[in-house]
């Protein structure tokens, strides 16, 4: 059974989400990939304001395909998260509580998640057509010059994700694999 989560996710809520929990997210999220993360962190380092409120924000690592006429957004699945590892600890410190991507994270990111209270979700990689249907509204916030990598504000309804790493550092990638292999041994 999935857990319904209404965004934004507070630090307190982030700490209640457990690794392995299947969640349906509804509310506002922001998109950013490598190039946008670089710019956001440069702003933080210069002490300048960010183009959107990072407090309690959830960032989806996605570069969608262009919307066809009549579509809100094109295909919109997650990109691999480790490329954001250099930037995520800074954004978590600044207030980010949720990240959506796919794949492994660095120990530095996990440490920041534990320290400040944040959760890392995975969406199904390669299921961009399916995930697109959960996005009800999309608008560009900034960095339009980056094309697919521009920062977008998305309104999502029941976006299916799985909490992979929680604020205690538990990791579904390790646990899921171990449990499956144990089940094979038992048989």
């Amino acid at each position: 059974m999935e857990r319904h989560i209404t965004l934004p996710i507070t630090r307190e809520t982030a700490r209640t989400i457990r690794s392995g929990e299947a969640c349906l997210l509804s509310g506002v999220i922001y998109t950013a990939r490598d190039a946008a993360h670089k710019r956001l962190v440069e702003l933080v380092e210069k002490g300048e304001p960010l183009p959107f409120d990072i407090k309690d924000a959830t960032i989806y690592y996605v570069g969608p395909t262009p919307a066809k006429p009549g579509q809100v957004i094109g295909s919109a699945g997650p990109t691999t998260s480790y490329r954001m590892d250099a930037y995520s600890p800074t954004l978590i410190r600044e207030g980010e509580t949720g990240m959506i991507g796919k794949g492994k994270r660095s120990p530095e990111v996990v440490e920041a998640m534990k320290k400040y209270g944040a959760v890392y979700f995975a969406a199904i990689g390669g299921a961009g057509a399916l995930l697109s249907s959960c996005i009800k509204k999309a608008e560009i916030v900034c960095y339009e010059d980056l094309g697919a990598e521009a920062v977008r504000r998305l309104e999502v309804e029941n976006l299916p994700v799985v909490a992979v790493i929680d604020s205690e550092g538990n990791n579904l990638y390790e646990k899921g694999r171990r449990e499956y292999l144990d089940s094979v041994e038992e048989r």
Binding site: G63, T65, S75, T79, A127, G128, A148
Partner: peptide, 9 residues
């Protein structure tokens, strides 16, 4: 719907 299977085309 003849849309991309994945956003990374």
């Amino acid at each position: 719907n003849f849309v991309p299977i994945c956003q990374d085309t």
